[in-house]
Design a binder for these strands. Sequence first.
DNA 1: TACCCGTGGGT
DNA 2: TACCCAAGGGT
Length: 363
Amino acid sequence: MRRIKPLSVNTGKKPLEVSFSANIIEWHQSNGRHGLPWQRSNDPYSRWISEIMLQQTQVSTVIPYFKRFMKRFPTIGALSSSQIDEVLEYWAGLGYYARARNLWKAAKVIMREHNGVFPDSYEKMIALPGIGRSTAGAILAFSYNQSYPILDGNVRRVLTRYHAIPGWPGKASVLNNLWGMAEQHLPPENIGAYTQGIMDIGAEICLRRRPHCHKCPLANDCLARKEGCPERYPEVKPRSFRRVRATTMLMVQDEVGNILLQRRPSKGIWGALWSFPECFSDKEPEQCLFEQLSLEANVISRWQHLLHSFTHFDLEIHPIQLRLTKSQEVLESRDLVWYKPGSRLGRGVAAPVRRLLKQLQGA
DNA sequence: TACCCGTGGGT
DNA sequence: TACCCAAGGGT
């Protein structure tokens, strides 16, 4: 790899050697990723959608969701004038549903306060719900050619290794240090190629396990490599206790097989998505149903409970199948709906609930 | 600040 | 298997 003579860079802070960014930019030209769906244009809307989807989510998972989403919501206006239920329907299965709710809210803000034009300044961007420092940096770099740093998992890994930075990167002091490094490494030009390049190195070269140091354009000056064990960085998160929550889901059907769904609270797990009504108390499901929804039903069967593991806790789901004892008109509540098996859902349903729904229809 | 938020892939 | 973690942000 060609070495470039270190130069002073004007970033405001103490500059680091410019060879870091220059090597990345040169490497990216012939070795970086260029064919991803959101790389077809620098349109801030599509970059915004992709950056939000890519938060804590792998590229291969995002690709089909991104294509479907952009086809249905091709502009900020299309997104802002849609129903949140349909946005969540297109998001269902991606997880972290606050991202979809914030996307929808931000689209309305952009229409109302920015005349429908995606903002081009860091301050305006970061004021939008769901856009933090890293996402704003990415959009500014890719869509507006403005020199702002990002700090995703890839960049964290590259920087902690290159500088041999100890400590878990989630810790504030370590994170601040990393943001400083990210800022000081910014190139004087080609910010888009640099930003994409450092992520590509993190994703395809500087792997968490068994990194391909022999292919890395930063290997010559990488301190972790000099120490002999790059896998030591970044240090792993301290382990924390995993809790178990239990919930009873009421799978209510009427006499023709329609299934009752209820909108979940807007915060918490699967916020604003639809699922089976839940029985939170220790009361019997029939009584729970009557008290909460004024519905009379009989228990048909109690299904074997299933354990759904999240990052921070396990959810123990107890499904109970019930049937209405007398026919019921359409419920006069917007938080309740009868779902007709086989029809389009038209609303977001979390993956485990969707699986249960399918089982219930087959039963 | 520590915790919350989801789903799927990798080891 | 039981973890860790992924183009993070909100509270």
